[in-house]
Each structure stands twice: as C-alpha cells, then as structure tokens.
Design a protein around this nucleic acid. Sequence first.
DNA 1: GTCTATACGCTGATAGAC
DNA 2: GTCTATCAGCGTATAGAC
Lengths: 211, 211
Amino acid sequence: MPYLKREAPNPEPIDCRILTAALDLFVNSGYHNVSVHEIQKQADVSIGSIYKHFGGKDGIAKALYKHILNEMDELVDDVMNEHKSPKKQCEEIIRLLCGYTETHYDIMAFIFHAKHTEFVPDEPLICNTLPFIKIREIVKSGMECGEFREINSWVAASTIFGGVIRMIQLRLDNMIEEPLPTYFETLIDASLNGVLTSDTTKTDNKISAVL
Amino acid sequence: MPYLKREAPNPEPIDCRILTAALDLFVNSGYHNVSVHEIQKQADVSIGSIYKHFGGKDGIAKALYKHILNEMDELVDDVMNEHKSPKKQCEEIIRLLCGYTETHYDIMAFIFHAKHTEFVPDEPLICNTLPFIKIREIVKSGMECGEFREINSWVAASTIFGGVIRMIQLRLDNMIEEPLPTYFETLIDASLNGVLTSDTTKTDNKISAVL
DNA sequence: GTCTATACGCTGATAGAC
DNA sequence: GTCTATCAGCGTATAGAC
C-alpha cells in the first residue's frame, strides 16, 4: 500500500520517551512531587508500559541515574584522552561543565541539583561514581607530576572544581544571568591559581594583572 | 503535695521538640520520606499539637528554614562586626562553616544538602537569603578596597566559597574522614589565592612554597 | 507489548472529647 | 492547649483484556 501514510511510527523508542519525560519532570518538579501518572501522560505512554519497562518510578530514576552518569563518564574519558597534562585536563573538564550547563540543562540539574540518596538510596553516592573518581585521580596525578602543589587531595579537588560547581548551581537557580562560558577564562584562572605550583602561578598572575 | 515526683515537666518547650525532631528526620531521611506521624512520634507530641503549632508539615519546614537561616545570619553578622577587612571576614566565615559542620551536622546538612525548592517553594532560594547576600557583599567590598582582584563578583564569590561548600558536602556525605577544621589553613590558602591581588598573593605563595 | 480499570496503603489533615 | 479517632485523597502497583 504505497500511499498509506502511517502515523510517524515511534518518533522515539518508547523507553527513551519515558526517560526523557521523567528527567524533565524530575528536574522541574522534584522526584517526589512527580507521580507516575504525570510521567505516563507526558511520555504519551500507558502506565502498564512504564511498569513493564522499568518496574516502577524508582526503576526509572535508577535507569536515568546510570544513563546520565555513564554519559558524564564518557565525556571525562574523552578529555583525558585528548589532553595529557592534568592541569589542561582540569581546565577542559571545567570548560565542558560550563558548556554542558547551557546545552544540557536537565542533565546538569539532575547531577548537581538533586539529593539522590533520597530517591535512589541503593545507588552509589554521586561523588563515588566513575566520572567523579576519575576527576580526583586527575588531581592526584597533577600533584605527583608537580603541576599542582602537594596539599590534601580533597582540598585540591574542592578548590579546583568547587568554584565551577558553585557557578553551575547558581546558574541553574537562575541567579547568574549570563551563560557560564562567558566567565570561563576568569573562572579557570581563579580556580587553578590556588593549587598551581609557584613557578606556574607567577606568570599567569602577571598576565591577568596586566589585563 | 511535696514529694509528688512529677514527670520532668517540659524538658523543652513543645514547639522546640517538634522542630528538633523534624530537623533530624528531614536531614536523615529527606523531607518527602518523613511523615507527620513520624515527627509526632519522635517529638513525643500528638498530631493535634503539630497542626495547632505549625499548621502542617510544610509549616514545620518553613519555620525550620527561617529559624536556621536566621541563625546563620547572626553568625555572619558577628564575623562582620569583629573583623573589618573583607579578606579576614571571608577567612572567618570559612572557619565558621568548617567548625559548624562538625558541631552542627544537622543544620549544615539542612542548608547545604537539601533542595529546598522542592518543599518550601514559596520561600526565597537559599542563595537569596540574607546571610548569602551579605557574603556576596563582603566579596564585592573586597574588590572595591583592592584586596581582591576586580573580576566578576559571581566568579569571585564562587571561587572563594565554592571550595568550602564542596568540602562540606563531601564531609556530610562521609567521603572526607577527618574533621574539616583539620584542613582549614590549606583550604583558606588555596581558596583565596585565586582572587587576591598580586602583591598580597606573592608573599603568601612564598610562605606556602617554603613549608 | 500495550493499554484500562481497579485495589490497596499511606499520608496529610480534621473534628471533637478532655 | 493537648490528645485520639477518623476521613478523604492521592499515588503506587497489579490484574487482566486486547
């Protein structure tokens, strides 16, 4: 039947629609304020399918959690492969996070704006997931190779990435009006200054003092 | 009746017991995972009293929110009164936050570990409350008086306080095993280095390089 | 595999006695 | 002011037709 115009069939696979709808609703209303019925409605799927595919609301949350963290992990891997120096790697991760906040609001909000222990209690804490572990490893290797000062690694990691994370949270809360990449250079400079070894610091300082 | 030994009467006022119990439960289980019945049980009060005093679960949350932020605000005020230099003020606030994380776990968890918009939607965002606004003012005045470099104030504030906040969150998540004050000096040094004007930086850098 | 209709439990909230 | 008993509604989950 050549001219039979079928309804655009499966614009997206069903489980993908469910996850997309769930992410949107979770991020905008909060996990506990969203009912399965709302997800079902927004995903244009029946409740039965949801329970068939994910086993329930918590199943959706778990799947989302794993999916998103896997995506982050791959991004971190890419950065690690493309750049060798830990300092450069940190910079690129910060750039990545800034950019992603603008292009993938939901994902960043899901990662940095939710208290996951409240709804995926048996999943590992987000700071114990692969991408975050890898980032801490980067910081450590930066200290070993002499790019970063030898201080406690928690302090180092928090100093380097605490600034961006804070900026991301403020941006997600609509406190910061400009897109984050606007501040990228300043942010990098300020965040890394505190942990760089003195020789590296000096030059950067002079440059930014002149500007 | 002299020797009538009454039950220790009102060890604490009733609304105080309710708030204490609620804070504990909210922090440890998450607002949405706590029922009024649980609060009632733990506070050793009847449901009626709770609704009489606070009008419901959300009333408790609001009262807690205001109470705690008021407490924080007074602490910030104290710091601002006792120290004049913005740099010193920032240091003392960081010290304060580190100490408070150890001595007042629940309060810090409530402030830094919960997504308040999900359960007190009509209250101002936490970053728009008095203590946080004042902290940003400190940062701005630091730039005006020349202690801090003149960069975007969001970046400056995030750089200075993003590190501590991150440390607090990691500590609350039991990732960091030592009490935060252990890291205070290192943290201050690393956090402030990025925003100090170059002359101030130089000396500090040399000192920490020698150590 | 997908859907509809239904059941069951829990939670927030109230009414009224003391 | 404090309590107990009770209600109404919602939200998760299931059973069974298509």
